[in-house]
Every structure is written in C-alpha cells, then in structure tokens.
C-alpha cells in the first residue's frame, strides 16, 4: 500500500469525558485506502516540547462523509495539543502505516474483539469491516470506571457489546479476562489495550487454543521502518512494530505468558 503525507482538515473535535476526545479529519479528495489495525503519524505543530510525530490508530474511516476518525487519550503534551485542535485547522499526517488485523477464516464465526481504555480505537474500524464482510463481531470492552467507556453506541451498531469496569460502575466488575463471555466458545480474538491486559488476554487465548491477534503500541520515532526504534522481541528476533506490526499473532511474540 502506498504511503502518503497528507494535510487534513479538522472537521470535528468531540470531547469524551475528561481525558479522551474524538477527532474527525477530512480532505476534498477521497481518502486513501486504509485497513483496520493501521495507524497514522501525526505531526504536532506549534508545541515546542513535542519533537517527534505521534502514532495514533485509525479509529474509523467514514467513506460516505470522507472522514478519518482518531480517538485519542490526553497523556502528555502531544495529545494535549491535539485536544486543542479546532474545526478548520490543518494537520499533517503520514498514512496508512503498519500492517493490519487479518480477516478470519470462513470457519471462524465467533469473533471477540477485546479492548481496554483507548485501545478500543482500532477495534471500531475492525468491527465495522468485519460486519461489512458478513461476520458478526462481539465486543468486550474494559475500563477503570464507567467514565472511561467510549463510543458504546457505535460499537452497539456493529454487534453485541460486553463490558467490565474495575470499580463495577458499569457491566461486570473486574478485568476483561474475568468476564463471563469468555466461558462461551470463541474462534478468534483481536485485542488492543494496555500491555498487561493484552498479555492476560493472550494467556487466556493460548490456554484455550484460540487464535489471538494483539496490537502493540511501542514508542516510535519514524513510523515507517527506517529507525529500528520501535522493535518488539519475537520468536524470530526483533521486529519493527511500525512495519511488521502493530498487529502480531500472540504466538509470534516472546511474551512470558
């Protein structure tokens, strides 16, 4: 897939609670092809403390309105600057970057997409793509508390949604790996979220012999495979999360699980 550098215009900036926000970007020409699991590298201008681009997952591609969605959590100066974007601002990004989630085999019908915190971002795009391809995805979404759950209405349009919160303020209390849905038969798991959560999900999947794809968020400099900064240890040595990933089959990774 050809990568490009685009100047996109902010068409919406919607605050979702204290620390999350949804940015929508548009341009006149049709958006380039993008796959679920891929990400963009956002150049943050006018923020002296931010030097490198910031990698953000493609949350959704709205082909009707020609919009790219990014779901972002404020964690530092770069994401704070992004939270201040106004409608009409121009933002440069490199896209589409990285590999993508793989489509299930036809025999794999019970698909569970497990997201934690802002890690749900790529799962919306994956869920919508699965639905378009005729699958019926299920979503298991976890957060600290109810306030950390985002885009629930969007997810509900795509399939059944199961919820856990650590404080029990919504859904089942506990971690995603404790949810009762995991007792049901599952053919394939796609997961993105904090590393300990993904490791717990991968451990569960391995124990149950379920195929599991995880989406990693290593620190990046270039995002295009040139600097070798973003590597993760795999069964076959160091691999770049920005080009060989961000999506890996959990069995490929050298996680001690």
């Amino acid at each position: 897939m050809k990568k490009c550098s685009l100047d996109m215009v902010v068409s919406a900036n919607i605050s979702l609670g204290d620390s999350h926000f949804l940015l929508k970007f548009t341009q006149e020409e049709p958006l380039p092809e993008m796959l679920p699991g891929q990400f963009v590298q956002v150049r943050i201008d006018n923020a002296p403390s931010v030097f490198l681009r910031r990698p953000i997952s493609v949350n959704y591609v709205d082909r009707v309105n020609n919009e790219l969605w990014l779901l972002v959590q404020k964690v530092g100066d770069g994401t704070r600057k992004m939270s201040e974007y106004k409608i009409g601002d121009t933002v440069n990004m490199l896209l589409p970057l990285g590999n993508s989630f793989t489509m299930p085999k036809e025999s794999q019908s019970r698909l569970l997409l497990v997201g934690g915190g802002v890690g749900i971002a790529p799962l919306l795009f994956m869920g919508s793509t699965l639905k378009q391809e005729g699958f019926e995805p299920m979503f298991l979404l976890g957060a600290r508390s109810e306030g950390g759950l985002m885009q629930l209405d969007e997810f509900k349009k795509l399939g059944k949604v199961y919820i856990t919160t650590e404080d029990g303020s919504a859904g089942e209390k506990g971690f995603v790996t404790q949810h009762s849905i995991l007792q049901e038969p599952i053919d394939m798991i796609y997961t993105c979220g904090p590393t300990p959560m993904m490791q717990a999900v991968a451990r569960f999947a391995q124990y149950k012999s379920i195929d599991c794809e995880v989406s990693l968020e290593n620190k990046m400099a270039c995002g295009i495979g040139a600097c070798l900064c973003c590597v993760t240890q795999t069964q076959t040595g160091h691999k770049c999360v920005c080009t060989d990933g961000p999506v890996f089959n959990s069995k490929e990774l050298s996680w001690q699980i």
């Binding site: 403390s49 030097f51 290593n218 400099a221 900064c229 973003c230 240890q233």
Partner: peptide
C-alpha cells in the same frame, strides 16, 4: 541490537540506543 526501549524523546531531539541492529 539492544533491547526495547531504544528511544526517548528529549527537548528538541531524541536519544537512541538501537545498537546497530
């Protein structure tokens, strides 16, 4: 090369420790 993390952003620059992978 060296183990991850190999990169840290710094004021107006970055540190790398790729280690000739």
């Amino acid at each position: 090369g060296n183990a991850y993390p190999r990169m840290a952003e710094t004021p107006s620059g970055m540190l790398n420790a790729v280690g000739l992978q």
